[in-house]
């Protein structure tokens, strides 16, 4: 018995060491660094009352939330459609949809510039139609489009997997009892996809909260939280504030994932 325990402890030890070295220790270090500035622990209070940080935080949460909801709406419809219908080119289309997963955020940002930048396609078409050049790549709208672009693929895949598991007899059962199309969506399809939508939504939110590459590429007028952290860290050398902001960003994201995990009762992987 004692030997078994010893063996078990020996087997678990590397995992625990890894967890401590690469997760607990850096987190504690960052939390401590956050309180190491001239204001001490009050740094945390400062970033929650300072108008600039608060605005950035609010904007980031709002952006991530909007991206999440929009992604769920688009990917939900597309995922169910792709899972339900067999048509020529379906596999190719599904493969194309997952293509953005391969691009780093910088490339996604670059693509948004090509689309809606000063020389972008949207601008050229808008100028031809209205005489005015439409440029939104460098605003929150540009970020929104970029984030949608890399959020939709993973959500579509999750929804497809869940939709394929839905029993079509459930929908037919509801219809036989008199439920119309929308009623079936509300009473059968959405509850059936609830777990997948919550899981995909949580990851989508977490990714959008922490995404940096796209914001960095587009950044002219945008101050989402990761950008502010970067600026404080590199330009301002304000290490304490950067650490405190990072800690808050992590805490909010973690909280959303935790809530989603509780609600779904399923496994929602915390995104890195």
């Amino acid at each position: 018995m004692g030997n078994d325990r010893l063996a078990l402890a020996a087997l678990v030890a590397p995992a625990i060491a890894f967890l401590i070295a690469f997760f607990v220790f850096p987190l504690l270090m960052m939390a401590r660094t956050g309180a190491s500035g001239p204001d001490g622990l009050a740094t945390y209070l400062t970033i929650l009352v300072d108008a600039r940080y608060l605005a950035s935080l609010g904007k980031t949460v709002l952006l991530a939330g909007t991206v999440t909801l929009t992604t769920l709406a688009i990917a939900g419809v597309a995922g169910v459609f792709l899972a339900r219908h067999r048509f020529p080119g379906r596999r190719v289309l599904t493969a194309f949809l997952t293509l953005p997963l391969a691009f780093p955020g910088v490339v996604v940002g670059f693509m948004v510039i090509l689309l809606a930048g000063r020389q972008g396609v949207v601008g050229t078409i808008a100028e031809a139609l209205t005489g005015e050049r439409l440029v939104f790549a460098y605003s929150l709208a540009g970020l929104f489009v970029g984030y949608l672009y890399f959020s939709i693929p993973r959500t579509v895949l999750t929804v497809m997997a869940a939709a394929e598991k839905l029993d079509p007899a459930l929908e037919e059962g509801a219809r036989s009892l008199g439920a119309g199309r929308w009623r079936v969506v509300r009473d059968v399809v959405l509850p059936g996809l609830e777990g997948a939508l919550l899981a995909a939504g949580a990851i989508c939110f977490a990714t959008a909260m922490g995404a940096f590459g796209t914001a960095f590429t587009l950044a002219t007028q945008i101050d989402v939280l990761p950008m502010v952290i970067y600026a404080e860290f590199t330009v301002g050398a304000n290490i304490a504030v950067a650490a405190a902001l990072s800690f808050v960003l992590g805490a909010i994201t973690w909280a959303v994932l935790a809530i989603a995990r509780t609600a779904a009762g399923a496994n929602v992987a915390a995104a890195g």
Binding site: G173, S176, G178
Partner: peptide, 14 residues
């Protein structure tokens, strides 16, 4: 089906 007023029992019960 939703307007035919039929009662259905499925093999999987649904």
């Amino acid at each position: 089906v939703e307007r035919r007023n039929v009662g259905m029992v499925f093999q999987s019960y649904a």
